[in-house]
Amino acid sequence: MSEPSAQSDSWGVLSSLPGNPIMWVLILSELLVFGAFLLGFGGARLVYPDVFRAGQAALDVRMGGINTLLLVTSGLLAALAVEARRADRFGTMRLCLGGAGLLGVAFLVIKGLEWSREAALGHSLSSDTFFTLFYLMTGFHAAHVVMGLVVLAIIARYDSLENLETGTAFWHMVDMIWLLLFPVLYLTR
């Protein structure tokens, strides 16, 4: 992302952050919201250890791992799109944005398969506390992925450098949130 511009000086302490300051307000807000979710999840596990142990054992860690690799690779492509835009290589920029979006769609497809698998095993939103939180947290994140795909499509059309930096920052935020969700939901027991 770019260095802070003179135009953003009026944003006070946010002026020292790269890109559009409003995006950082959103990033901080989302971190706090998902952070509260994750700490709540940890607290609920203290109350229902057996329920959470059984629930996590039913999850497919490999699917979660593949989805993590998809999102971080998508994040790389989004960052490369900004680099390409800075160099006025518009073809490369669109290719990278398209690749980032496709990997985001692949993430959603795998997430859908994973939800279907869990549903087939009889694990629904109302099964127990673990699956209520699992579906809510992954569903809320998936909604962000969908929104991120819309943002990527918009910046591919309206491709000013500022739009690219701001739009891809949203995508990186979605990526970063998943990097926190994945270990807590799937790996930490």
Binding site: L17, A169, D175, M176, P183, T188
Partner: peptide, 21 residues
């Protein structure tokens, strides 16, 4: 898992979101 998550989130912040400088 948790240490890796911390390092990964920092990588995204520093390099993809450009927080390094």
């Amino acid at each position: 898992a948790l240490a890796a998550s911390f390092v990964k989130a920092r990588q995204v912040l520093d390099h993809f979101l450009g927080l390094r400088g």
